[in-house]
Nucleic acid binder design. Sequence first.
RNA 1: GCGCCUGUAGCUCAGCUGGAUAGAGCAGCGGACUUCUAAUCCGCAGGUCGCAGGUUCGAAUCCUGCCAGGCGUACCA
Length: 552
Amino acid sequence: MKKKLAKILKDTLDLCYREGSLRQVPLPEFVVEVPNNPDHGHFATNLAMSLAGEQKSSPRNIAEIIIRHLVDPDHFILKAEIGGAGFINFFVAPGQWYDLLSHVINLKDDYGRSSIGKGKKTMVEFVSANPTGPLHLGHGRGAALGDTLCRILDFSGYDVKSEFYINDAGQQIKMLGESIYSRWRQFSDPSYPFPSDGYQGDYIQELAVEIAKERKLENLAIHEAAELLSELGKDKILKEIKEDLANFRVTFDLWYKESDLYSSGKIDHAIKLIEKEGMLFEKDGALWIRTSRFGDDKDRVVRKKDGEFTYFASDVSYHLDKWKRGFKRVINIWGADHHGYITRVKAALETQGIPGDWLEILLIQLVKLWEGGAEVKMSKRSGKYVTLKELVDEVGVDAVRFVFLSKDHTSPLDFDIGLVKKKDSENPVYYVQYAHARVCSLFRKAATENIHVPEQPDSTLQRLVVDEEIALIRKMAEFPSLIEEIAGDLGPHRLTYYLTELAGSFHRYYNRHRIVSDDRTLTQARLFLSLGIRILIKNGLRLLGVSAPEVM
RNA sequence: GCGCCUGUAGCUCAGCUGGAUAGAGCAGCGGACUUCUAAUCCGCAGGUCGCAGGUUCGAAUCCUGCCAGGCGUACCA
């Protein structure tokens, strides 16, 4: 509806230019928005104010000219007024609202779907946890965000793929094997030393027990055993990670192994490409990329003097590979502690002429865990952190996803276990889900009274005249543009707020007005309205990966 | 030192990319279930938007400088 209004305004300006009542100037930026104050109409625009400078006339004057010339062949606008310093406030004709509600009901699950993505090939890479331990809450936050972005981008017409990058090469995997080996030896010899920076969690012992049952470790040399344990341990942990994610309603289209970059020679190839551009040099026995040419503080090592590639090397080659695979929009979700990495990766890509804005990196700020007023320190190595699985088992997928998604990812998330553990109430997700269940209950009630709502909305909609009813429909109208905006700015937390507001408006309406009553046509009209609410909540929750229960 | 993120009600956070009187949820106080689900609703109270300048018709939002907190600044991954 905002778009329709914007078009009317543009047509109106054209008319004014042709007529000479306004000086022809380039179209200024202006917005059509929903005012907070209902007295300010259903929609408002600042068009006249943003024209004022170029027109050398007062905003209110211009507003008056625009209102007088409004090009509105469909009688979309009921009335237009000047407000404040020069806002134009629009009141939309009631029939438009009924049309919109009908539209929602007809489209059902597809209401809000769009094609603005134009099939653009897009990748969202997220979680990408090292297969050296179970997922923690930070991973969970990234998982919820990435998964929801995929759902929203897909809904908005992007050709989107989700990918998990598996760091299955390098030092940390070696350390995993050594850690398991030590724990295994300690079963028979408690004094056997444990690596100082080994993985501390209980899961290491569990893996040792499990693998010892499957394989004979006794006959192997230390390094052979450790290598075997690396391999098997990594696979088992990865399997567990996949299960935890699936349980969290997160699935991936693609799993990409770091080790494949080595075995396929892609790292060597990437380095050759960079060398070809003259951006590679040798110093102190190591190989460096001239990332400082592209905004980095200093140059970075890709191959150490011991001949091993750095993690940075595989990351560069990984991203060059993403480019080669033809992705036009690439979104990475990283932990905030990786932010120092952004410039150097982008710099390395720029040596190949890949523009910096091709890669969108979202940094997830920390999830801080509180229990009983004290902070619970999390550390991947300590093994003391609460895992995603533990939290999900305790609170449920719906609550965890909703809470994770309800904050902008740029701000740290304080997660009070005690509070969220409570399964009964106090959790915003229940507020939204309850509205959905309530609507379902209304339909059950109506059925017992032998009231059946036709498939297609009809003229009874005209019985919807109360302010709250129009406000609800107006709220529904915002959904498609909200989804479009989120597909652009990647801030899905706004959807959780939207749903909370929508549910709130409905709860308020429900408490104030009787829906199923003796008045048949009114009942039918209100059930249509409720159906619209149900569709919106279900669609919104689906995009968040949260269920919409019919009974609570 | 340098870089990134953050600072809005007692607490946790929104604030639609510069708009009209800054909003929710918790927590506090007071109300509403013989009536469609009270996991709900209504009311009260709570703010120098970290501080100081600047940009303009207009700033929580943009620019600069401070202050405070978090994270990062490896030939680690």
